[in-house]
Design a protein around this nucleic acid. Structure first.
Lengths: 227, 227
DNA sequence: CCTACCGATCGGTAGG
DNA sequence: CCTACCGATCGGTAGG
């Protein structure tokens, strides 16, 4: 969720091929792999117990490591939380933002974004539903770098949705009098309602309802002059 | 949020006036008062640190009591959590359900319900926003009596909103082809989006936007035939 | 990446 | 409603 722009993560560090460089690369690659394993489990765990409920010991147990093994990768709980947020952002970009960008510009991108989000829930990438929906309510009224990072992610997403809305209006696929802020707010609400209902009822039917609501809402706005 | 029906909580126990009964009543009244103080602070604290993050020690400190003083009122953390949920439900009934029921039946009740919810946020009854919105995402994927109680509250609220919608359709204040489940879902989404945005941005302007969205949404559905 | 440890805090109990 | 305590777990560190 960090952004709508694809941020290519260039991996390895060079082209040297001495034994020493290979060993360095091997060690670093192992470390990166372990780090990835830790963070994948951390994102999953955090959607169930929260970013604050995520404990170093609990996470270490879940992946069969010692606590100090985790401290070798992240110096503190806060650093782990921030890295976990970034990992969740990469997953969100891959599974939700990516499919939206792959769709034709305008209204199809709005529908693709919502459908991708519902698929993100349906596929149970995270056992506790949307990582960020939970994190916003958990961290919203606190303070510190973790809260600020979550707020930043949420703002980035809202801005992205608004861009799609503005584009759809400019292309004449939504009525010219549609209020971008209002529709962005509504779409975010549909997304949040889908997450809450799916988390609670564990029933894919709520995602079908959500997808139908998105379509009927956009169809109505295509014809009317006032949102 | 337990229900839309007013549940009068009959207090005192009788009409006896012996010294012994008075002393009993006095003791019980003191206990009830302390219990209320504890629960009021518990609901507030829980909206910031979560129902799970709510600790006996932290709550005891917040109200200037000893931990064991709390254990005298609630035998366990789980019992405290359940009592806290009930207290939050009473507050929600008072501040949100009550004003809706006081409005004229039909569409005015839907608007009154949403406005009362936005006012519930604006007045900062709870520092962390809507108690139940946070609790649903925190407890949704767990198990046990606390999760079940939260799920029950959410279902009761959803049913209540749906009743208002059905009534408004029956009265001809919403188009006959409006889908009750779809509109209930949308209204719940607007409520959740308002809570998330207010918690994060701490800006009453988001509540004004939410109120405007509710009105324009209902106005559009009054005229159209398909939701 | 490990074992072994630290002070602080967790939920909960004994006994008054 | 209190003091005093329990074993378990918290985030974090030393030293390898």
């Amino acid at each position: 969720m960090p952004g709508a722009t694809a941020t290519p993560r260039t991996g390895g560090s060079g082209r040297t091929s001495s034994a020493r460089a290979d060993r360095h690369r091997g060690r670093r690659a192992d470390g990166e792999r372990t780090r990835g394993t830790i963070l994948r489990e951390a994102t999953r765990l955090a959607t169930v117990v929260g970013l604050e409920g995520l404990t170093i010991g609990g996470l270490a147990d879940a992946i069969g490591m010692s606590k100090s093994g985790l401290y070798a990768h992240f110096g503190s709980k806060e650093a782990l939380q921030l890295a976990t947020i970034d990992e969740a952002g990469r997953v969100f970009d891959d599974e939700v933002i990516g499919p939206a960008l792959a769709a034709p510009a305008g209204r199809p991108q709005i529908i693709a974004l919502c459908d991708a989000f519902f698929q993100h829930l349906r596929g149970r990438t995270f056992p506790g539903g949307c990582f960020f929906a939970g994190a916003v309510l958990e961290m919203g009224t606190r303070s510190g770098p973790v809260r600020d990072r979550i707020a930043e992610c949420q703002m980035t997403f809202t801005r992205f949705v608004r861009e799609l809305v503005v584009t759809a209006i400019a292309r004449g696929e939504l009525g010219p009098a549609v209020d971008p802020d209002g529709l962005t707010f509504e779409l975010n609400g549909i997304i949040l309602a889908a997450d809450a209902a799916f988390v609670l009822r564990d029933d894919p039917a709520v995602l079908d309802l959500a997808a139908a609501v998105v379509r009927s809402r956009l169809a109505a706005l295509e014809r009317t002059q006032r949102a």
